[in-house]
Simulated scan of single mutants.
Amino acid sequence: MTLRLILIRHAKSAWDDPLQDDHDRKLNARGRDAAPKIGAWLAGQGYFPAEVLSSTARRTLETWDCMAPALGEATVMRRDPGLYHASAERMLEALNGCAASPVLMLGHNPGIGEFAARLLRKPPQSARFDRYPTCATLVADFEAEDWSAVSFGTGTAVTFITPKDLEG
Rank of each mutant, 00 (worst) to 15 (best):
A86K: 02
S148P: 00
A57P: 03
G46C: 12
R59K: 05
D65S: 15
T156N: 11
G153E: 04
G107Y: 01
E73L: 11
P133V: 13
P81M: 14
T137M: 05
W147M: 01
E143G: 05
R121Q: 12
A40R: 14
A99N: 06
D165S: 11
K37H: 15
L83S: 07
W147T: 05
E167L: 13
A40L: 04
T159N: 00
L83G: 03
T134R: 10
Y84Q: 11
Y132R: 02
G46A: 11
L42A: 05
L166H: 11
R78P: 08
K37S: 13
A57M: 04
F160L: 04
V139T: 06
Q45A: 11
L120I: 00
L106C: 04
A94Y: 08
F129S: 01
K164Y: 09
D146N: 13
M77A: 00
G113E: 03
L61I: 13
L119W: 07
F129H: 03
A74C: 00
L42M: 09
P102D: 01
H108A: 05
F115H: 08
C98S: 13
K37Q: 15
F48Q: 04
G82P: 08
R118M: 14
G153C: 06
K164M: 08
A100Y: 14
P123Y: 09
K122F: 02
F129C: 01
K122D: 09
A116E: 10
V52L: 15
D130F: 11
P69A: 06
L61M: 14
T162P: 11
E145M: 11
T159R: 08
P110S: 05
Y47D: 14
G107T: 02
A70R: 07
S87A: 03
T156L: 10
L71I: 13
T154A: 09
W41G: 01
I112W: 11
A88S: 12
L53E: 00
L95P: 02
G113F: 07
S55Q: 10
V150Y: 06
R90Q: 06
V52I: 15
Y84V: 12
T75Y: 05
W64P: 06
F142C: 06
E114I: 15
G155F: 03
V150G: 01
E73M: 10
E93S: 14
R78W: 10
R58A: 12
A68S: 10
